[in-house]
């Protein structure tokens, strides 16, 4: 280090400062670039979507005519997926997270379980699609349904929910639990009335974020057999609507995007805006619930 020779740092002072400044600027640009990309992306989408986006697009049915096409079935599909996915994944995620934070002893099995969950969180979502296809669509017999889609998305968010719950519970100070035990509360009453109320706002907020990201995923839904409606028959699309399958926003967008007919591109852009807004609304709901719960907890 330069300190070994004190004169070096003094001699090197002025150039070092200029170097410093350039370095700070380079780092700041690197940090700003992703945000510039994000803004550019949203602007591009808005411009491309301008000819389509509007109320009639949101409440309209998909049609072969790109101009008169709407997105209602896909929007309804994605809203249903939000509810079903949360309904399936949240109880299991909560249970597993609470167990790992409050009950599990630091045994080898526990460590192995936690590592396993970390691995599950990293498995690509398209692979969960394959599992959903074999287990939910073909074996259990949900068919190509919203339920099969939601169960598949639930698999992708489950590990994240477990990790979120476990970490939020672990951050609650130990002294609070001991105070509750000292008052004679059992372990579950302590969890139910002391630990969970403190951890729940964080859990709900992060869970909403996970679900919001999950409904943006096209690949697991395409693999379990979701279709884009109102596009000339190709892979992953049907010309009308389908009674033995389902649709959702990212799938509909994919069908419009990959259709050979370039007039659908504006529909795809408009569909992406609807998708991004829905994702933002779901995350915002999480933030709202966190705020409300925190206030109720304090007051």
């Amino acid at each position: 280090m330069s300190a070994r020779d004190p004169s070096r740092s003094i001699r090197g002072r002025t150039p070092a400062r200029i170097g410093d400044r350039i370095f700070v600027a380079v780092c700041a640009i690197a940090a700003a670039l992703p945000l510039v990309a994000l803004v550019y992306l949203v602007l591009q989408l808005l411009i491309a979507a301008a000819p389509r986006i509007g109320w009639s697009f949101i409440v309209g049915q998909p049609a072969l005519d790109a101009h008169g096409s709407g997105i209602l079935p896909a929007l309804a599909g994605s809203v249903t997926l939000v509810a079903l996915t949360a309904l399936i994944a949240l109880p299991v995620g909560l249970a597993a997270g609470i167990y790992l934070a409050e009950y599990a002893h630091a045994t080898r099995l526990t460590r192995w379980t936690e590592r396993n969950i970390a691995h599950l969180a990293a498995v690509p979502s398209v692979v969960y699609g394959l599992v959903g296809l074999v287990v939910f669509v073909r074996t259990i017999g949900f068919g190509r349904s919203l339920l099969a889609g939601a169960a598949t998305l639930a698999l992708t968010v489950l590990p994240k929910m477990v990790i979120t719950t476990r970490d939020a519970m672990r951050r609650v100070p130990r002294a609070l639990r001991q105070a509750s035990y000292a008052l004679g509360a059992t372990r579950w009453r302590t969890i139910r009335h002391v630990v969970l109320p403190m951890a729940m706002p964080t859990i709900i907020e992060r869970a909403a974020l996970s679900v919001a990201r999950a409904i943006g995923e096209a690949s697991p839904l395409l693999v379990v057999g979701a279709l884009g409606y109102g596009v000339a028959e190709t892979r992953g699309a049907v010309s009308g609507s389908s009674s033995d399958s389902f649709t959702a926003l990212p799938v509909q967008v994919w069908a419009w995007l990959t259709a050979p007919d370039q007039r659908y591109v504006a529909n795809a852009a408009a569909g992406m805006i609807v998708l991004l807004v829905l994702m933002l609304l779901v995350s915002a709901l999480g933030v709202y619930l966190r705020r409300r719960m925190t206030r109720a907890h304090e007051g």
Binding site: P34, L35, A37, L38, Y40, L41, Q44, L45, A48, L209, A212, R213, G216, E217, A218, S219, P250, V253, W254, L257, V265, A268, A269, M272, L275, L276, M279, S283
Partner: peptide, 16 residues
Amino acid sequence: LAGVPGVVLGYFALHA
């Protein structure tokens, strides 16, 4: 930005 779906980023790659 990390939460932007793959289909949207794919659109970005293809059309921008």
